[in-house]
Nucleic acid binder design. Structure first.
Length: 285
DNA sequence: TGTCAGGTCCTCA
DNA sequence: TGAGGACCTGAC
């Protein structure tokens, strides 16, 4: 079994995996995290020597080498500098940054993000995780067994195209089943565009996403931030509404005001600011 | 048992 | 345009 040791800064496994950006990692009793990324199954823990992350590659997908994990964990970005800039903005964001100072934005697969965040609407994290695991088990490629459990990769668009609405309803996706069937069909019909979505500008990518079924402004911004690395995307969910009301006095309906404010105040790092604020309000209420 | 959860879509003024 | 209700399901 291969393993990697990577030097990390501004890095906290719990904060990264519990800040709501991903649904495929589970905390173990010893504080390590076990999960699937791409076609790989891995276990992550902090090495005794502080500042080193240990990644045990329990099953490794083709080409998913050290560079894959560096990109996945966004290790080449200087979060220290970004945090410093954000902290200068005001007292509230400074508190939030200090509270979640080890958060990093993962670089996840765009298609997986599309489906995962359609599922996330009007739901909660345990249920979202269960639905994503069910979909992966039924339509994804088997990765391997570990400690008595079988792990599967998230399905490709072609594999998920085999799913019917009734089958997805059986997996307890509820009314989101119809959205997924329609969205997968639209994506497969526009594969040329979807293939180049990672190189699109924010506005073009968002416009494309909003044409899919079951994707509104909030879900689109989650996909843009967590799957397409648009760091200024500022997803506004109920928690962000809450903290924008408490910290900055916005009416909860005033989404446009919040977006403009975030763009103006946090600029190109609005998405990371959103994660700090989100993690802070969830951890303090 | 009822409420609410990381929203979107549809209808109707 | 924007407000308000419907929508699957399950954790709490």
């Amino acid at each position: 079994m291969a393993s990697l040791e990577l030097q990390v800064r501004d890095f906290d496994l719990e904060q990264i995996f519990e800040c709501g950006q991903c649904f495929r990692w589970d905390r173990r009793e010893d504080g390590s995290y076990l999960g699937v990324a791409g076609q790989s199954l891995a276990k992550m823990s902090m090495a005794q020597e502080s500042g080193f992350l240990k990644i045990e590659l329990l099953r490794s997908g083709d080409g998913e080498d050290e560079n894959f994990w560096k990109k996945y964990l966004d290790l080449d970005r200087d979060y220290g500098k970004i945090k410093e800039e954000l902290c200068r903005k005001d007292e509230k964001i400074r508190e939030a940054v200090e509270f979640g100072s080890g958060i990093r934005i993962l670089s996840q697969d765009p298609f997986e993000m599309v489906i995962s965040f359609i599922i996330s609407q009007n739901s909660n994290i345990p249920r979202i995780k269960k639905c994503i695991n069910s979909i992966s088990e039924k339509y994804g490629k088997k990765i391997g067994d570990y400690e008595g459990r079988t792990y599967y990769a998230f399905p490709t668009p072609n594999a998920l195209a085999k799913a019917t609405e009734a089958e997805l309803m059986d997996l307890k996706l509820g009314y989101r089943a119809a959205y997924i069937v329609k969205t997968v069909s639209i994506i497969l019909g526009n594969m040329d565009n979807f293939d180049r979505i990672e190189s699109m500008e924010y506005e073009e990518a968002k416009e494309f996403l909003l044409r899919l079924s079951g994707i509104g402004p909030k879900v689109a911004d989650c996909i843009l931030l967590f799957g397409l690395r648009h760091f200024h995307a500022f997803p506004i969910d109920v928690w962000v509404k809450r903290i924008m009301h408490e910290a900055y006095g916005f009416e909860e309906k005033d989404l446009k005001g919040m977006q403009d404010f975030a763009k103006e105040k946090f600029g190109e790092n609005a998405g990371l600011a959103q994660q700090y604020l989100f993690y802070y309000i969830r951890g303090n209420s």
